[in-house]
Amino acid sequence: MSAVTGTADGAPVGEPPLAPAGGGAKGTERDGRGAGRGARPLRWLPLAPATVLLLLFLAGPIGYCVWIAFTNTQLTGSSTSDFVGLDNFRRAFSDDNFRNAVWLTLVFTFVSSIVGQNTIGLALAGLMRAASRPVRTVTGAVVIAAWVLPEIVAAFLLYAFFRREGTLNAVLDWLHLPSQNWLFTLPILAVSFANVWRGTAFSMLIYSAALSEIPKEITEAAEVDGANGVRRLWHITLPMIRRSIGTNLMLNTLSTLSVFGLIWAMTRGGPGTRSQTLPVFMYDQAFLKSLIGYGTAVALLLLIVGALFSVVYVRLLKVEV
């Protein structure tokens, strides 16, 4: 069983065939061409431009972020910046608005990424395997179009959809269901659904690939043994695609944690602070309230959470490089 599992979702990717050892081993044999030993470091020279850019514009800001987070820097002048130790973090943990932002970020991530994108993506991928071809094509096109549209356009579309005068309420009226002002009464749910609308295609594509890797014989064998749909899903399909589920959840969560434009354009974190997730809170403190030091401390916390997820993700992949 474990061997089968390995092939079934060990390679949910299947993009270009990788020749991990081959290329490298041949490469080392290949430099007896006149250049000799002196040229060995030179052949790593092409790495330089990328490395310089990454150090300057990615590692640099991260280092700067760590430094600023421990100071009381304000936007109004750099002369006032002093080292304040852990004050920013202490302040954050006793700040009601910060705790509110953490809570809303958890709700946003749980509803939109873990429940929404992941489950709907899996359901769509499964249903598409059973559906007829035209339906499958149309569904794929519509869901993927929502994904490819620029973030800010998606935000405007869903703003129009959830407004009091918007399409959702029109549909609810037509069904004789109670309508309400979604962006005011349940702003965090509205932006979560917006994120589901925008991000489900990604999970759908991943699960489609993973499901197509499951050998037909296995599902057929289970069918012959009399396992019904739910049992087949629970005991066969889900275990076989568990690695894809893991990576998908991880990547969804990471991208959901850093959603800013969608929320900013739809609600600006409001009304009040009722849809203010951590990125919006960070922006609000650093720029609108000019507390760069405090905002950066929040950013650093976000970065650490992201980094932890990334480490888990890299380990989960067990990449061969």
Binding site: G24, W44, L47, L54, F57, L58, G60, P61, I62, Y64, C65, I68, T73, M250, L251, L254, L257, S258, V259, F260, P279, M282, Y283, A286, F287, I292, G295, T296, A299, L300, L302, L303, G306, A307, F309, S310, V311, Y313, V314, L317, V319, V321
Partner: peptide
């Protein structure tokens, strides 16, 4: 170096860029 380099690259692909925009602006 190549393996640690590639693992670092893979790790970096997942970092939330949003979070470093405040320090980037400062720099």
């Amino acid at each position: 170096f190549s393996r640690p380099y590639l693992l670092t690259i893979l790790f970096t692909t997942c970092l939330p860029i949003t979070a470093i925009m405040v320090p980037v602006y400062g720099l």
